[in-house]
Design a protein around this nucleic acid. Structure first.
Lengths: 228, 228
DNA sequence: CAGTGGTCTAGACCACAGA
DNA sequence: CTGTGGTCTAGACCACTGG
């Protein structure tokens, strides 16, 4: 039954037993030492395999209590949020960028939870295109407190995202997706005002300091995909 | 600088050097053996730390070539797709479930990429509620080939999701999010026909066999959030 | 070919929580 | 208190790949 060797082999062996309901949901599985003996490897190898399955959500591990098969394997979808240029080019299309607006604002973008707060910021509006067709409208604010150098950048050839990624480190962020209608952005996206759009909002910090906020409204029909 | 001990300490030390641009984007960092010597720990400990940072996307590791700081730390947002009951109850609201329709269809759901294909299936339409207000409309098909027992289930008190999770194992799946208008579902969701909705579609397999497909149209304003 | 990360081992100690 | 996972170590061999 021990098909492949190594920790991946152990992982697949265990996964197989769970899938086959040898170890049904909620059941406890043998401890690491016993499994190591049974499978003829070191405990560290079993540990590596079980840890991987726990990270997948298939197992629940607790000290002293042991390892159990998860009752509800929580589905985890990992979305990769790429730089838009690369996202577009990955589809085989030619990427285009157009700067729509750029201004220095003294503060208060007033988008509540998704704004930088009351700090002076550079605000940029830009259109991303794929083969000349609208792909997404980007509305961005970059804090002049955290990133003073940004005022020197015209952003007329490339967007703020690529520029920031390579220069400004961040520690954490918050991201959200929802559906909105195009409304004022309908012109830029060449769609009806009532067209449903997938919107992404993101806010990024470096420690306590907010760095940048961005709202992306994708063209109608845009789909976010991932494996499960 | 070596604050905490253990592999987490090593991880944070390295993270700190990257963040401080001691090791700028694209630069190679010392090899594991050297780092272990410098930090006074075993190579395995360094390996554990660097592997964690690589999984985060902060480092790129290749044999022989060594470890480099990623040029573009690709943002990864991990969405947890919970059972709807738990999602609703996590907001503090009371969960409600209403079965809208249930039928055995001979085949051909015809949603292209997101359908089970031409297999007999149980089709269920249900409404999920939070404190009596519409939360999401679920449109589901369950393959009668893969899950024959499902025809016995009335699904008048709980939805197919919870039932399936505890009984039917799966190996992989595909998931997508986009924005659509309410249209025919406006009545159930108590909103305008033109209201923008966040839609999730999912298709699940066990090996080669499709198990179930589901489309979820959330009530207007629904937002998918995660940390970054 | 040779240096790097990838992995395995055998053993040890520790932190934690359950009985 | 005691068993379990969590972690660390020192050493070893291997697989891959860049020069």
């Amino acid at each position: 039954m021990t098909s492949a060797p190594g920790w991946r082999g152990v992982r697949e062996t265990v996964r197989g037993r769970i899938h086959a309901r040898d170890w049904p949901p909620g059941a406890a599985i043998p401890n690491e030492a016993d499994l190591a003996t049974e499978l003829g490897c070191a405990r560290a190898t079993v540990n590596r395999a079980l840890r991987a399955l726990a990270e997948e959500g298939l197992l629940e591990r607790r000290r002293r209590a042991g390892t159990r098969v998860a009752l509800r394997p929580v589905a985890r979808a990992t979305l990769e949020i790429p730089v838009i240029r690369e996202e577009v080019e990955a589809t085989g299309a030619r990427y285009g960028y157009r700067l729509i607006g750029r201004e220095v604002a003294p503060g208060e973008a007033d988008d509540g939870e998704w704004s930088l707060g009351d700090v002076p910021a550079l605000r940029v509006v830009a259109l991303h295109e794929a083969d000349g067709a609208p792909w997404a409208v980007e509305t961005r604010s970059v804090s002049l407190v955290a990133v003073p150098d940004v005022v020197e950048e015209p952003f007329d050839r490339t967007g703020p995202n690529e520029w920031l990624l390579e220069r400004v480190p961040y520690t954490h962020g918050r991201i959200a997706f929802d559906a909105v209608t195009a409304e004022a952005k309908a012109g830029l996206l060449a769609c009806a005002a009532g067209a449903p759009l997938l919107r992404m909002r993101r806010l990024t910090w470096d420690g306590e300091r907010p760095i940048t906020s961005v709202e992306l409204r994708h063209a109608p029909g845009h789909t976010l995909r991932t494996a499960l």
